[in-house]
Design a binder for these strands. Structure first.
Lengths: 223, 223
DNA sequence: CCCATTAAATGAACATCGTTCATAAAATCG
DNA sequence: CGATTTTATGAACGATGTTCATTTAATGGG
């Protein structure tokens, strides 16, 4: 455990600033989620990790939803950074999509945090702006570019949601779920699923993601 | 309110079966979600609506997650029904995708319910089986067909998640959120988003959905 | 038909959660 | 330094998911 771990009867650390800083609170919340999962993130636990009373948090975050929105916004930091030169628009889209996926993947339950909120902070806005910008350069109308950007983001969120759900299962109950699925897969009833089982139960999420994204990009090229 | 509404001090309705039936419980849970939203679905409220004590529910559902999985499974009933004859494979995919979207849209917070669980029930399985089957008929390998089916489902889930989030906002706080977004959209900082605002704030989710799905289908055709 | 055994529902409790608020402490500044 | 404003405290409230010993209803064999 880190030095800021919740120790019993911890008197306030001496050198630490007394005032509760919002960015530190958000960072600590993300650390707690990484350690114990989103379901274990509690206003009380966050307060304890910050060496503060629960009520104090509500001076800085009106509600837990507000906290989660700030976390989602923080997760996207850097996602809209400048793109390397000399990339084709295909590569630019792949790069941007990969960044968002990685940003969600970087924190445990990151996709759940992101999907459960609706942030309008600068990180979220500039990411969408950058993505729409790249798409507009492919001779797409503003409307088509926007709709395409939404499509890409929705795919990423849906995909990462499932990827992290699988990761959460993997902690203990993956074999049971896998066995349950295999047992339910009667080739007579589900002939196509039987042929698909290897791919369905695969953990090659990188490959799955690339396949889906390339599908969208290819559809874009045919316009 | 329906005749099964929670009335104060309701003695057990006379003609109703004493035993708690699982399908009735699932249906009632979905009705409660439709009425008050997923956040208001409580084991206690469900028990009250079923004229039963809380503990009784735990004899039929090991946990609330189990309940939610049963609800997700129930939502997909009929989604894998036979397709009309004479449809091109493009139309078959559009039909199947539209069915899943409608199934999630039919219940309030349906996408959240579905995304938060991992059902392996017959409705979910046969839907995926049907979708993979259609894709395999387009000369796709089992692996490519499976990955494409996953892509389509992930897009639908991500899209509907956002569509229903907008619906939830619309109940009271839509104007505030919209104004907040508009204020944050400085054309100097986010030139592309400024051009995209009309599309971003549009409520034409049917159009957005069709655009995204057609993109995927077009990418499939270019294979 | 009655009684023993199994299945099901009850009612109360436990720990924990998000949230609120009157009070106290600390920081700020004229 | 003293007054005012900002911030943190500590305790509480109602509600939630879950558990369990007890009671009640259904079931089946003699």
């Amino acid at each position: 455990m880190g030095p800021t771990s919740t120790s019993p009867s911890a008197q306030r650390s001496r050198g630490r600033p007394r005032k509760l800083a919002v960015p530190e609170a958000v960072a600590t919340a993300l650390r707690l989620v990484d350690e114990d999962g989103l379901d274990s993130l509690t206003m009380r636990r966050l307060a304890a990790a910050l060496d503060v009373q629960v009520g104090t948090l509500y001076r800085h975050f009106a509600t837990k939803q507000t906290l989660l929105a700030a976390m989602a916004e923080e997760m996207l930091a850097g996602c809209a950074g400048p793109l390397p030169d000399g990339l084709t628009w295909r590569e630019q889209i792949t790069e941007l999509a990969g960044r968002l996926r990685m940003a969600l993947l970087r924190h445990r339950d990151g996709a759940r945090v992101y999907a459960g909120t609706h942030s309008v902070g600068p990180n979220t806005l500039s990411y969408t702006d950058t993505l729409v910008g790249v798409l507009r350069e492919t001779c797409l109308s503003p409307e088509a570019a926007t709709r395409t950007a939404l499509t890409i983001v929705h795919f990423i969120v849906g995909h990462t949601l499932e990827e992290q759900a699988a990761q959460a299962l993997a902690e203990s109950e993956l074999p049971a779920t896998l066995a349950l699925l295999h047992a339910a897969l009667d080739p007579g009833t589900y002939p196509n699923l039987a042929a698909a089982e290897a791919t369905l139960t695969s953990t090659d999420f990188v490959g799955h993601f690339a396949h889906g994204l390339n599908l969208i990009i290819k559809g874009l090229a045919g316009e």
